[in-house]
């Protein structure tokens, strides 16, 4: 992931920046040698130009970093610092330094490993279909449509639906005795499933909520990127006799590479931090993720330790472990990509 990103960064660092000189129209009409004021102005202008080219990139990225330093850095450091202490939310002042205890403890913590496993399986069964469906839907939405605004708006409604409403609806849908899904499955000859009690059934249910909630979200992201694909590419592909499917595969997907990479990165991060959907699926005391923690994700476990058991130090260690885990995934991904390229 990392190396792929830096590849893109390298590839797009085009010769354009600073390469082209400004066309000074005044200079063309009046040779500078005869007018010292103009020469000064031109000199000044070209200096301004150079400052602009050199300085503006920093100016453009600085708001993000300024706000991050003001509001993001302190929580990050505070959390990291807390992860080396025994500290409870009930008494933040009573800290006891414990070194790496909170981290080493996690290695023997079966609840942590269970949550890690669940996060992985739910992540896979929710993210892969979600992104594939989103890509397909975006392709359809990119056709000339009647009511295109309506369809676009509808796609984002799940993301906008309030959590309380979604929780109630899905609880009713996945109910054991009166749920609509069991009712429908019953007509197909299946017996009643207690969706929440089983490991796979609960993870499938949680994943389906994730897919419901985020497919439209990714669809719009893809759609925006598709809007920027020049239509003549499709036309020439069509002239070459490419079917719609072939156009999609050979024009859309390659052009969308940066955006697809973006959604993969963001979905991976989102899946690792998954919290809301399993929480609402669990009903009261949702942070446990089921009575045997069968759908407790890392996000829920972190929440349970920090906000139900008030172990702030341990929760901080979980947070930092998740953070480091994502960095590790990124690094491994990058190394693998590099190795693959070398071996080719």
């Amino acid at each position: 992931m990392v190396s792929e990103l830096s590849d893109i960064a390298g590839a797009t660092a085009s010769p354009a920046q600073g390469g082209a000189a400004p066309r000074d129209e005044a200079a063309q009409h009046r040779p500078a040698d005869h007018d010292p004021a103009a020469a000064l102005r031109r000199k000044w202008r070209s200096r301004l130009y150079r400052w602009d080219v050199k300085g503006s990139p920093y100016a453009f990225v600085s708001p993000f970093f300024l706000f991050f330093v003001a509001f993001g850095l302190f929580p990050l450091i505070y959390t990291g610092w807390s992860s080396f202490y025994r500290v409870e939310l009930t008494n933040l002042d009573a800290r006891e330094f414990v070194g790496f205890h909170n981290y080493t403890r996690l290695f023997q913590d079966e609840f942590f490993w269970n949550a890690l496993r669940n996060t992985f399986t739910i992540g896979v069964i929710s993210t892969v279909p979600q992104l594939l469906m989103a890509l397909g839907l975006a392709h359809l939405l990119n056709y000339r449509l009647r009511g295109s605004t309506f369809f676009r708006v509808a796609m984002l409604v799940p993301y906008a639906t309030s959590v309380a409403a979604a929780a109630l609806v899905f609880t009713l849908m996945f109910g054991t005795d009166y749920g609509m899904i069991n009712w429908a499955l019953g007509h197909l000859g299946f017996g009643h499933t207690d969706w929440r009690a089983g490991t796979w059934s609960s993870q499938i249910a949680v994943s389906s909520i994730v897919i419901w909630r985020w497919t439209g979200y990714n669809t719009l992201i893809y759609l925006a990127a598709m809007q920027a694909v020049p239509s003549d590419l499709y036309e020439s592909a069509a002239l070459d006799g490419a079917s719609r499917w072939q156009q999609f595969r050979h024009v859309t997907v390659p052009m969308l590479r940066p955006t697809i990479l973006f959604t993969i990165v963001v979905s991976t991060i989102g899946a690792t931090q998954l919290f809301g959907e399993p929480y609402l699926f669990g009903g009261t005391g949702g942070e446990k993720g089921g009575s045997a923690h069968q759908f407790q994700t890392l996000g829920l476990y972190l929440y349970e330790q920090g906000w139900t058991n008030y172990h702030l130090g341990r929760a901080s260690a979980i947070a930092w472990t998740m953070f480091l885990l994502l960095l590790l995934i990124a690094a491994v991904n990058g190394l693998a990509a590099r190795w693959l390229r070398k071996s080719q």
Binding site: L5, G306, A319
Partner: peptide, 23 residues
């Protein structure tokens, strides 16, 4: 540039639930 971009992406990886207390 690359380092700064990586930094931006890395900030996304911080789990949000815990920042609440220090924030």
């Amino acid at each position: 540039k690359t380092v700064l971009l990586m930094l931006v992406i890395a900030t996304m990886m911080v789990p949000p639930q815990l920042s609440v207390v220090p924030m």
